[in-house]
Write a protein that binds this DNA or RNA. Sequence first.
DNA 1: CGAGTGAGTCCGTCAAATGGACCCACCTGG
DNA 2: CCAGGTGGGTCCATTTGACGGACTCACTCG
Lengths: 152, 152
Amino acid sequence: MRRTRFDDHQCPIARTADLLADWWMPLVLRELLLGRRRFNDIQQALEINRSVLAQRLARLVEVGVVERRRYQDHPPRYDFEPTDKGRALWDVLGVMWQFGERWLSDEPAAIEMYDRRTGERIEPAVIDRNTGRPLDPTATRRRRTDDPSVIA
Amino acid sequence: MRRTRFDDHQCPIARTADLLADWWMPLVLRELLLGRRRFNDIQQALEINRSVLAQRLARLVEVGVVERRRYQDHPPRYDFEPTDKGRALWDVLGVMWQFGERWLSDEPAAIEMYDRRTGERIEPAVIDRNTGRPLDPTATRRRRTDDPSVIA
DNA sequence: CGAGTGAGTCCGTCAAATGGACCCACCTGG
DNA sequence: CCAGGTGGGTCCATTTGACGGACTCACTCG
């Protein structure tokens, strides 16, 4: 299929969607961010087609979300390590987790996230940094910063 | 293309990805949640193919994220209104906004979100509800709730 | 009476996802 | 010393969806 690209849109949601809104990307990133680093490990964990995975990893390297590192020389072997930018994506995945658990699962959660130091369950929540309150789409609007009268 | 489905996965990220990780879904939801309700309005705002939009809206109705309502009888006309489940997705979009603005935009933000009552800028942030602290993927692990010794 | 509106459907084309085989350099066990 | 992994891919045929664009059909408005 021809895929429409959004990476040149002004809207930050569109730019993020261009990177992340692909079936496999969130799962590939989940594996990378929770510690899997090697091509074959990820491929087997996700049962993803090898060429699709190769292409997704190449994209992640290209946009600077992971680094491809040579971890041995003979024969050359590579792995994939998240950058700061990649780790920042965990916020998005964490909130996807929270949404999926609350709204897309029938039974009580079969898997949970926890802090490996304290053992405590982790429950991501989204707030507005300025007010500390939850987001409310019905009260939210967009505006151009160069001309606040224009509603984007 | 054949698309692999994740809606039966245990992992909440996979379930959410199955719904949202499609190029158009975040943008369609952005429009719906920020107030656009009608097929033609959304189609023109996004410049999305009409049959693709029809299919995406049908999916959103099917999973209960929006409701299709008849708003006039002669001739029958329909619009699409987010449900509570749909409004809950705003958290995900808000965090995608934040990521895109911080990591995918070069120039200072051209568009911002604000509260239509107070006029204040909105900056979504993700915290752990229990500790109030930001998420840290390097400290995060998964476990099965039925058997905490199994690392998922 | 003709144009426009709203919410779609239908069609041909093109490209990406999929399953599966293949590759090749090195390492390991017997 | 040779067979069988292992790691990180590439290549191929098939299928399916995205895309652009035209068409529909029941009204309503001027």
